[in-house]
Design a protein around this nucleic acid. Sequence first.
DNA 1: CACGCGTGGCG
DNA 2: TCGCCAAGCGT
Length: 320
Amino acid sequence: MHQAIVNWFGRNARDLPWRSADCSPWGVLVSEVMLQQTPVVRVLPVWKDWMSRWPDPGSLAAAASGDAVRAWGRLGYPRRALRLHAAAAAITAEYDGEVPGSYDRLLTLPGVGSYTAAAVAAFAFGHRETVVDTNIRRVQARLSSGQALPAPALTAAEMRLATELLPEEPVLSVKWNAAVMELGALICTARSPRCTECPVRAECSWLAAGEPEPTYTPRGQAWAGTDRQVRGAMMAALRAAESGLQRELLFAAAPSIVTQVHGTGTESEPDSDALSPVGAQLHRLYALKAEEDQLARAIEGLLRDGLAQALDGGRIALPL
DNA sequence: CACGCGTGGCG
DNA sequence: TCGCCAAGCGT
C-alpha cells in the first residue's frame, strides 16, 4: 500500500513552487498558512507575489500589518495575514530571522497549529512528523476505517492511526505525508472521488463496504445577514484603498450592506438598534459622514490599530 | 471542545 | 440555483 501510493505520487504530483528543492523554509511556512482552508489554485498567484515582495521573515516584519492584509487579497480569513505578520516578527526577534525547524518551536508561532507545525517541520526540514490534514483524515477514514468521511473534529484515534501508518525512515516519511495529502486532494476527494484512478482501490475498506453514506451531515456556515458579511464588505473596501483609505469606497459599500443586514430595501434609514453589532457600528460610522476630520482619523485608526480587533474580535472596534 | 472565522468554484 | 467544500487556528 505504501509503495503504491508513493509511486502514484511520483507520477502524479502537481508541480507546486513551495515543493521546489530551492524553496526556503519561509516559503513553505507562507504556503502552509495560505493553504489553511483555501484551495491551491487561489493561493498560487498570491504566494508568488508575497514571496517576491517579502522573501524572508525580516522583510515582512519591517512592513506595516495593513500592507500584509492588503497583499492577502481575497484569500479569505484575513486574520491569517495578521498572524503571519506577527509570526515574522517573532521569528525575527527570537530566532534571528531564521524559521525554526522543530515542531515545538514552530507551534509557538502565531497562526501555526498542530498541522502547520508538523507540515513545516516535515516539508521544509525533512523531519519525520505525523502530518494530519483534512485530506489525510479522509483517506484514512475510507481506506482504513470504511467511513465515507472523517469525524467532525480530529480525534486521538486518527492521530494514532496516522502515526502507525507513517514510515520509519525520515525521507520516506516526508514523501508519504505529501503523497497521502495529494491522493486526498486529487483522487480521494470529498464529493466525487475518482476511485477508478485510485492506486489502492483494491485495499479500500469503504469501497469494499459498498460506499456507505456519511453518518452525519456537516453544518454549513451562516453568511447572509451576519456580522461576517459586514466584515467582508468592510475588508473589500479596506483592501481597495492603496494608501490610506479612500473613505468614499467605504461609504459606497456601507448603505447596501446595512440594508441587507437590516432587511429588504426600504427608503427609510435602518434602525441601528435592529442591526447586528458590526452592522450598527458601520451604520454609526456612515452617519458621521459630515464630520470629515473626525471620520478620517477614525478610519486611519481602524487601519492602524483596530484592524486586528475587527478581524479577531468579531466586532469592529472603532477608536471614535 | 464546539464554535466562528472569508471567499469563490463546483456538482 | 445553492449548499458544500477547501493543506486549520484560537478561544
